[in-house]
Design a protein around this nucleic acid. Structure first.
Lengths: 231, 231
DNA sequence: GCCATATTCTAAAGATCAATAGACTATTGT
DNA sequence: ACAATAGTCTATTGATCTTTAGAATATGGC
């Protein structure tokens, strides 16, 4: 019996620990932060701007995430860069999102009506795309900003932040299929790009998932280049 | 631009929905309930007793879980039985637990010191065990209560609630290896059983994970028999 | 050393959540 | 129809969380 006398209190303690992570992902703001951090390390100020929070508030939320050990800060000069504590955190975020998508009608509606329906790109499709990229059949555009591209992108993709798309168009071969992607399925940058591209007469499609899902699926990732901050 | 004007509000709504599930798993009590429900459908009163809550309080927490669509009630006579809304909920719970185990030192300590260390039973080990069960090499004891056994158990296992272990011992062949299991890695029923069995001279080990992990791994599950409530 | 910048820490307001008690509903047995 | 049982719903209190403001800390440029 020795080990078992305090069984209940130990178990309660365990649930309390699990709840630490639960609490961390129980706030829309913190989920938004995690989502952004899935695309790579960022300084507090940038994060705050991206999720429309005051720096103070963002800092407070980041503290909660830090205390749950989901993110880690790295101080560089006068800036503090936050990043996910491990790959598994992004995977967990995706697991949460997938569960929500299956369980909550409200989430399904976002994906169906707002984004015009996800076409369920299967792992096979992704590998197929990868093969076609390698053979040079398609042009792949990464719509995220350059620092995110530098932190990791689909091999062979070209960094074209949305603002630069019009200028970049002249160097995109008109006879090739174009695939645009950004952060994830709910990111609209690639949607806008596809709208513009098709209006200009391109055969353009959108990668239903984004870079985060690509990386989480274990597909190859290329780093650096094009706006990379040299260490 | 049409679809994109309300991009921010839609995205905020999305995070808010994800947070619904986050909130549901942000309370130790609700996590305890989910853990218990991973072992099968149960009436409110039984759940309340198992997690040491008043029925009223348990009912309130179940309501939150219901609103997050993680559990579903089924009314049968004067009892209300709750169950997980889908397999994926148990999988998500396990994902949360695994993440916590990797990220939070406090959880690792529970598993290391309190339970004497998890020996990391790999998928292969589980399949090996399954083969050995089938060949009749080992006796497998399910320490959970009979209704949980009825809701699903490892094929070939024998239902032996802890209280009945002493009586059951006489029909357990002394020359065979015995493997005991219960709900999951933090369940101590199987620990107690192993202590008793080794004290009596058996070669007894504990399945590091429990039934929930077994089922989540996609291994075969047997249902009914031995204490099953006939429909 | 001094000022500006980036971020965290501390404190305090309002908002939200957990737990309990009492009223209410639905079902079973008599 | 009546009482007993199982569970939910409503309201209340105390606790916890979010947000903002102000003070404090650390870094880099002058």
């Amino acid at each position: 019996m020795s080990a078992l006398t305090s069984s209940r209190t130990v178990k309660d303690a365990l649930y309390q620990q699990l709840a630490r992570i639960g609490k961390a992902v129980s706030s829309p703001q913190r989920l938004a932060l995690l989502d952004r951090l899935s695309n790579g390390e960022k300084p507090v100020e940038a994060l705050a701007a991206e999720v429309h929070l005051s720096v103070k508030n963002a800092s407070a939320h980041l503290r909660v995430l830090r205390e749950a050990r989901l993110v880690e800060p790295r101080k560089d000069g006068q800036y503090v860069y936050y990043r996910l504590a491990e790959e598994g955190v992004a995977a967990f975020f995706l697991a949460l999102r997938d569960l929500a998508e299956r369980r909550l009608a409200e989430v399904r509606e976002v994906s169906l009506h707002y984004l015009g329906g996800r076409r369920q790109m299967t792992p096979v499709d992704r590998r197929q795309l990868l093969a076609r990229i390698r053979s040079g059949e398609v042009t792949v555009l990464d719509l995220r900003d350059k620092s995110e591209f530098a932190a990791g992108h689909i091999p062979g993709a070209r960094s074209v932040p949305l603002g630069e798309l019009k200028k970049a168009l002249r160097s995109v071969p008109r006879d090739q299929e174009v695939v645009a992607y950004c952060h994830g399925p709910y990111c609209v940058l690639s949607l806008e790009a596809v709208q513009l591209l098709t209006a200009k007469g391109y055969r353009a499609t959108r990668l239903d998932d984004g870079f985060v899902e690509w990386a989480a699926a274990g597909l190859p990732v290329e780093r650096g280049r094009a706006g990379a901050r040299p260490d």
